[in-house]
Design a binder for these strands. Structure first.
Lengths: 351, 351
DNA sequence: GTTTAGCACTTGATTCGAAAGAGTGCTAAA
DNA sequence: TTTAGCACTCTTTCGAATCAAGTGCTAAAC
């Protein structure tokens, strides 16, 4: 049975009121403050019906109603009208993002930090899955007497670097050979392929040139696989102010979420490219997430996934505003990255 | 008036009991559980005296006593006998630190992580003050078409790297010239000196060679100054389990400490080189710290400061154990770094 | 002189029931 | 179909009474 117009309006009002106060909402509150033109009794009847249909929950008989996950879902998909950011708000974001950040990972972290400051929720950042990165270039740089820095440049602009120490001697010449060989073999391959191939494909060959190569290959393997599992969180402190986290169990759940990160990783992985993904409460199977909502936006440039930004907040989230904000910031990030790319010579005749 | 032996024993017992329970301690508890051979009445009298002298506080008339900062201070300086780590505990630390970490900053972070896991408090890491780092080598590495990675190697083993994008063209040859010039001018200077000199000393010279140099110099400046202000915290989640943080205001104070980091920075800066520094509650002027203790250990190798590790916990801290643990871990870190240095060729004839 | 038993006293914590408050669900009337 | 009205349910609040912990002091014992 579809919801009639009045029920929609009532559901909307309840959600807005609950989002403001975090307290169960009663029929008379709606009748008096949201002049819908119906008495509290009528609203009461509809609220009972909405509960029956699963859009509302009731903590106990004499309390008001609380939106359920299904209620929020309906609101987000059907009722809600996205808030239009004011020029002032846009400027605020633009100003904070204006510094020319050259590493995409840093840019994305910066964006995430703004996101948490503007929304007052926690924000998250995830790097791209490793099978979405291809090797553009590998550089080996000798540092001091016995260390080697490995720099890995991916086609999506991600840069990773790490340092290994070797025992014995490697000549500059050997390093050059290693370097050329690595680039020759792996350029254009995605990280996962390189990882799967590196041992069989190249280790022996390198080893014959100089047997100090083992730690180098190990470290390269490590670099190819790490980031996959790393989630960076910001603004988690904001969350501690929320009234819902005053409850011991909810607090524990939240700390679990940010400590284990399992749920976040899973959702990030499943998010659609270039789309806003909204996961409300128990829509996901993660028990700890039942009182929270996660919204993610996976950044994509030229079909290359470059990472995900997102927000973690209470189910009672200001969807109307958060969704446009995350969109705006995400789009801005992509814009900046593309700009960077264009200066690269992508627009010939401009330099 | 100095404390007689009995008062010392009573103070010690109170501290140990309070450390266990976080509840005010009564005279009869001490009499029954810590057989000192005196009745509760006697202990009661001494407790009143200890309070009078400022070693104990009393939350209210009908509660027991709680150690004051002065009480803890006396305990740490005079009464306490440091706990001897068991071989098992040492092995635990050794195992966790055994992986060969090649970047000192990473090594120190690793150590800090172990510290928080073993003590169950929060741990902190700070890089060295920048005037304690000297330039050993600067490397410029061309990445892709329009980016340059700057790698800064300090004599204390710290490595910093960053990436800049430039507009226009720089030939490999120009990069080599920049590189030699930077090393020629700045090798051996400490970061602060370089920072103070770089603009007057070299910018024009470089600029004449290639005018794309501006962002490079800006970024280098940034690298020379950052880290100074960065504190890395670990295990803050442990703290949330503490009963003292159940109190709203104490929780707020703690969150303030870890968010602003002002107090931590100040204490880290003032810590004595190569020494354990203990800051108990209101011994420092920082209001937020009044219920907490910070212990720091500044790592030094060959007079070169390489960073600080430390612990943040409640005033009611297991001093007897935490101090030896932080010492052991700190010393282990230095040992590892020195080993690394030796493999470097420091011990000729070994390779 | 020092230590201890004993007890009155203080004060926060706990318990309990009554009253208050909020909001529903149902009935009957508009 | 909507609404007024009211009984009913359940939680929250409040204050009084009781409880429990621990002190401080006095007077006796060592």
């Amino acid at each position: 049975m579809p919801l009639d117009e009045r029920k929609k309006r009532i559901l909307e009002a309840i959600i807005e009121e609950y989002n403001k106060t975090a307290e169960p909402v009663g029929s008379s509150k709606i009748a008096s403050d949201y002049n819908l033109g119906f008495s509290s009794a009528t609203i009461r009847n509809d609220m009972a019906a909405l509960e029956e249909m699963g859009y509302l929950d009731k903590p106990h008989t004499s309390a008001g109603r609380v939106p359920s996950s299904k209620g929020y879902r309906f609101y987000v998909d059907t009722i809600m009208k996205e808030y239009q950011l004011t020029p002032r708000e846009k400027a605020l974001i633009d100003d904070n993002l204006k510094e020319d950040v050259l590493r995409f990972d840093e840019l994305i972290k910066e964006a995430s930090s703004i996101l948490s400051r503007i929304t007052n929720y926690a924000s998250l950042v995830a790097g791209p899955q490793n099978d979405a990165c291809s090797v553009e270039e590998i550089k080996l740089v000798k540092l001091g007497q016995d260390r080697l820095m490995i720099v890995l440049l991916a086609d999506n602009g991600i840069i990773k670097e790490s340092v290994v120490r070797y025992n014995g001697e490697i000549s500059e010449e050997n390093i050059q050979i290693f370097n050329s060989l690595l680039n020759y073999k792996f350029k254009g391959m995605n990280f996962k392929e390189v990882y799967d191939n590196i041992n069989s494909n190249i280790q022996d060959e390198l080893y014959n040139i100089n047997n100090t190569v083992v730690p180098l290959v190990m470290e390269l393997n490590h670099m190819l696989t790490e980031g996959d599992s790393e989630i960076y969180l910001d603004g988690t402190r904001n969350m501690l102010e929320l009234p819902e986290l005053k409850k011991e169990t909810t607090l524990k759940n939240f700390l679990n979420i940010i400590e284990t990160q399992d749920a976040i990783k899973e959702l990030v992985k499943n998010g659609y490219n270039g789309n806003i993904n909204v996961y409300i409460g128990q829509e996901t199977a993660f028990e700890d997430l039942k009182d929270f909502t996660i919204i993610t936006y996976k950044q994509v440039i030229n079909d290359k996934e470059i990472g995900t930004i997102g927000v973690i907040g209470p189910k009672r989230m200001d969807y109307k505003k958060v969704i446009p904000v995350i969109k705006y910031i995400g789009d801005k990030v992509q814009e900046k990255i593309k700009q960077g790319g264009e200066e690269d010579g992508g627009k010939p005749g401009e330099q």
